[in-house]
Design a protein around this nucleic acid. Structure first.
Lengths: 66, 66
DNA sequence: ACATGATGTTAAATATATATTACATATAAA
DNA sequence: TTTATATGTAATATATATTTAACATCATGT
């Protein structure tokens, strides 16, 4: 089972955003955000960057491990 | 026409690697690397991370555009 | 107890990343 | 000129990301 991405969830909650709100901003569905946070997805670079910009973070902030 | 990703090409050449060598290390084909460098691809996060590790760089180093 | 909002999760359909194969060009070496 | 290596590019096939729709749980509020 994949590793959860808590960083996105934390950054999202810091901004008082629901999964659905974030999804609307970046142009995907709620389920896609949910699955990314659950670590069950391998999102595209474009989507990663869109999430970063919506949350005022960088790729390293949200998607880099180690 | 999409923006070229010169950062990858530069980092690859710094390591004296051909597109094919990098492709073998990260487990994709030469064409995939070529198209990413040409800016005509939207690679997966997993592939981006593999490329970063092969070139001793981070996601922000290679894939973040202000 | 009932309603509502946020989230987890799953099945099937669609869009797109990636592989495969092939052919082209450019460059450097023999 | 020929040979070999590195790269650009395109067509079709396959794998997988993402959508859509549906139903579930878990809070919190009324």
């Amino acid at each position: 089972m994949a590793i959860k991405n808590k960083k996105i969830k934390i950054a999202r909650i810091e901004k008082d955003m629901t999964q659905e709100e974030l999804a609307n901003i970046v142009g995907v569905t709620r389920q896609t955000i949910g699955l990314i946070e659950a670590g069950k997805y391998n999102p595209s670079l474009k989507l990663c960057i869109a999430i970063c910009k919506a949350l005022n973070k960088t790729l390293d902030d949200l998607f880099w491990e180690e």
